[in-house]
Design a protein around this nucleic acid. Structure first.
Lengths: 157, 157
DNA sequence: TAATACTTGACAAAATTAGTCAGGTTTGTT
DNA sequence: AACAAACCTGACTAATTTTGTCAAGTATTA
């Protein structure tokens, strides 16, 4: 049960865009630098978020990306679904999969994965970027000497 | 957001063992046939479930596997954790991962994945095999002519 | 006219998954 | 004691997915 980097990067990228909300677009380059995500890879990710209607692009100089809705109306679930596809724990729950399961009507497992999937969606959708911003601003932002804010390390969330 | 076949097969295999609860052990071969899972692969899966203390093995002729606890005390979460490892949506939440995240204290994403992970665990742990058995027995077991119970198909849950 | 975004597609290294195979070892029955 | 049924262990591999990189061009607007 892991998230792909696409999902994780997506949330981080969108967090930067959300921070900028109401202050004009944020360029890919800027996001790439702030979140240390490769520019080419980020392009793929933002493109998908655009197609999903979560962000909008502004072309030309000083262009970039803007949230398509208010931060309170964009959830982690939106991002995960856009980047990782529908949350179908089991193959048989994916759209387009008919009644090909050989367990036919008896499928108890199907019930399980459906129920768990619903709970996951619920959890993902209960967190909006508004929440993230609040969480972020609630923290101590002072830079105490010796307290590093961005330290090189092996990875990121 | 997918489950591996290990997790899915594990639930199906354990369901068979749970059905047999109180009636002696169920052999691998039997499970393999009932659930159409390769015997060798099933061996790996059952071994892991054994190490996790979910099932116990009975050796010798007429041996097999038995639930180590009552069906009500074995949850889907137990199985998934045993077969897919701890539910750590992000790398940085895995046991053994120190404070290597370069986002250091500022990591808002960490908060998100932690919270979502907790909800997923909650969902997985809320379903026991007792529930599955009830669900199974609650259904209509009569074999109406023309209503197949196990039909060959492209896959299973 | 330059900065920025959008589109498309090919490519590839690395990791994970899904499973196979080949031998063990242990136990209970006969 | 022998044998078969059942579990145990670990190596191996093929396929798939993930995680990116790279290139080359088009469109838009300050």
């Amino acid at each position: 049960m892991k998230l792909s980097t696409k999902g994780k990067y997506g949330v981080r990228a969108l967090f930067e865009i959300a921070r900028q909300y109401g202050q004009g677009p944020l360029s890919i380059k800027e996001i790439s630098e702030r979140q240390k995500i490769s520019l080419s890879y980020l392009e793929q990710i933002l493109h998908r978020l655009g197609k999903a209607g979560i962000i909008e692009s502004v072309r030309g100089p000083h262009g970039g990306y803007v949230l398509a809705r208010r931060p309170a109306e964009v959830t982690i679930g939106d991002v995960v679904r856009a980047l990782e596809g529908p949350i179908a724990l089991s193959h048989c729950l994916e759209p387009g999969f008919g009644s090909e399961c050989y367990q036919a009507d008896d499928c108890v497992a199907r019930m399980v994965w459906t129920k768990v999937g619903e709970k996951i969606e619920e959890a993902l959708d209960s967190i909006s970027f508004e929440h993230l911003l609040q969480q972020y601003h609630g923290k101590d932002r002072e830079l105490v000497p010796g307290k590093k804010r961005a330290v090189a390390g092996k990875g990121a969330c």
